[in-house]
Design a protein around this nucleic acid. Structure first.
Length: 457
DNA sequence: CTCATTTGACCGAT
DNA sequence: ATCGGTCAAATGAG
């Protein structure tokens, strides 16, 4: 009875469904007993190549053999149900040869699947990858079609001159002598079915001719070209030398490049293998998580650094602003100091020298004078009645006193435009304030002040 | 998706 | 316990 098979496939009962599953975590698997290996009779061969011995083999495993330098490959016949087996291992004697062990016999129809180019292929050289057969897609298709292929192998190997001129008879004869021909049984070649088939019907010689023809198809012959450039022999020579130099350099580089490419390929393969192993053990995921975390951390650090930089910039700007503020404060306080210590005097001095102040002041003076004159006249009249001569009495102006009082009152309540304007300029600079002038400001200076004082006469 | 190859677990023999 | 042989899941190429 089958034990625990993990996948849904395992629920099937067909023999093929018993294919074992890779162990999933915690599951226990019991497989059918492995095939015995010691009861097989192996027929051993040493061959220059293991690639193509005329049979279709399917590789089913490879194994590192203890103390052996090269892997051992395990093949069985590609035909379903056929019991033939083959083990291949490269010899360690330095020769490019292989130890090939055959076991069992072909219970299939022994059908071969040879293809001409495969015969020419040499055994592959060293290295795990290159030791393996090259199952190109073409060959895969051939293998797949092997059951339908009917092959005829000629014993002859023709090496005729490719440029030999034949009549039609000879050509067809040569075609028949081709090493290997094959056809798929379902294909159109009815009369030949099962026998000789002119599949690759173009003779090799003819194919090679095609290159020559394309070369000769050039418009000019070599001589014509030479004639054409004869007028420039030095140019041609130097050009040719340069071309040759460049070509030789390129040729030198090619092997180096190919070596580098080989090394690179080996490196890639190794890395891929390491990655596969890491994936298998889960280390890669952990490593990737760690890398992601590092990445995240790096981003966080970067963000922090940016913030820090921002903060520094802000601090700088704040400091700058503070500095400016300080300067402004100093300026304002010095201006304020000036205003307190000298400003009032300055303003009043200017006001006193201005028309807007002197005019009402003059009115007061005039009225005062008139009032005094009027009072003098009244006193003179009273004195005249008492016998004092009129010419000795003062003049008298009725209402002059009241006018004087009004003028004084007016002066007291005058809103000087200069002062009003100053009071509206609180936000402006000291220079602006200084630039303001009262209406009708007289020239500055001591003499002016004196003149202004005497002008009241 | 299919199919070939690789890989490592599993088996029996020693 | 260890080794070589086999199986089939995992992997990779097309």
């Amino acid at each position: 009875m089958q034990l625990v098979w993990s996948t849904s496939k395992m629920e099937e009962t067909s023999p093929t469904s018993n294919r074992g599953q890779r162990l999933k975590s915690g599951e226990i698997k019991k497989k059918p007993a492995g095939r015995g290996r010691y009861n097989k009779n192996f027929r051993v061969e040493i061959a220059n190549t293991y690639e193509n011995d005329g049979y279709a083999w399917k590789k089913y495993a490879q194994k590192k053999i203890l103390h052996a330098k090269f892997l051992r490959y395990y093949y069985r016949c590609a035909h379903e149900g056929c019991g033939a087996l083959r083990h291949v291992q490269k010899l360690e004697d330095g020769s490019e040869r292989f130890h090939i062990a055959y076991a069992g016999s072909h219970t299939c129809q022994n059908r071969r699947w040879l293809f001409g180019s495969d015969m020419e292929k040499e055994g592959l050289t060293e290295g795990t990858k290159s030791q393996q057969p090259d199952w190109s897609s073409k060959r895969r298709k051939l293998v797949k079609a092997a059951s339908n292929v009917v092959v005829n192998i000629s014993s002859e190997n023709s090496h005729e001159s490719p440029v030999e001129k034949d009549d039609a008879t000879k050509r067809s004869a040569r075609r028949r002598r081709k090493k290997i021909v094959y056809s798929e049984s379902g294909e159109s070649s009815g009369p030949h079915s099962g026998n000789i088939v002119p599949k690759a019907s173009v003779p090799a010689g003819k194919r090679r001719c095609a290159k020559v023809i394309s070369f000769l198809e050039s418009d000019e012959s070599d001589l014509q070209v030479l004639d054409r450039v004869k007028c420039l022999p030095e140019l041609v020579t130097s050009w040719y030398e340069r071309k040759a130099n460049r070509e030789s350099r390129l040729h030198d580089m090619i092997p180096r490049y190919s070596v580098r490419m080989t090394h690179q390929a080996a490196k890639d393969a190794k890395l891929a293998k390491i990655v596969r192993k890491l994936k298998k053990t889960g280390t890669l995921e952990k490593g990737q998580e760690a890398i992601q975390m590092l990445d995240k951390n790096a981003k966080v650090v970067e963000a922090l650094q940016k913030e820090l930089e921002n903060a520094r910039v802000q601090i700088q700007s704040v400091e700058h602003a503070y500095e400016k503020l300080k300067q402004e404060h100093e300026r304002v306080s010095s201006e304020r100091k000036w205003l307190i210590q000298e400003g009032f005097e300055y303003v009043i001095n200017r006001l006193h020298r201005s028309q807007e102040y002197l005019e009402p002041l003059g009115a007061v003076q005039t009225n005062l004078w008139e009032s005094g004159a009027h009072y003098g006249l009244v006193q003179s009249y009273e004195s005249w009645k008492d016998g004092v001569a009129l010419e000795d009495a003062s003049l008298y102006n009725l209402g002059a006193h009241e006018k004087f009082l009004n003028a004084v009152h007016e002066l007291e309540h005058t809103r000087f435009p200069y002062i009003v304007e100053l009071s509206q300029c609180a936000e402006r600079s000291l220079d602006d304030l200084r630039a303001l002038e009262p209406i009708g400001l007289e020239e500055d200076g001591d003499e002016d002040a004196v003149t202004a004082g005497g002008s009241g006469d």
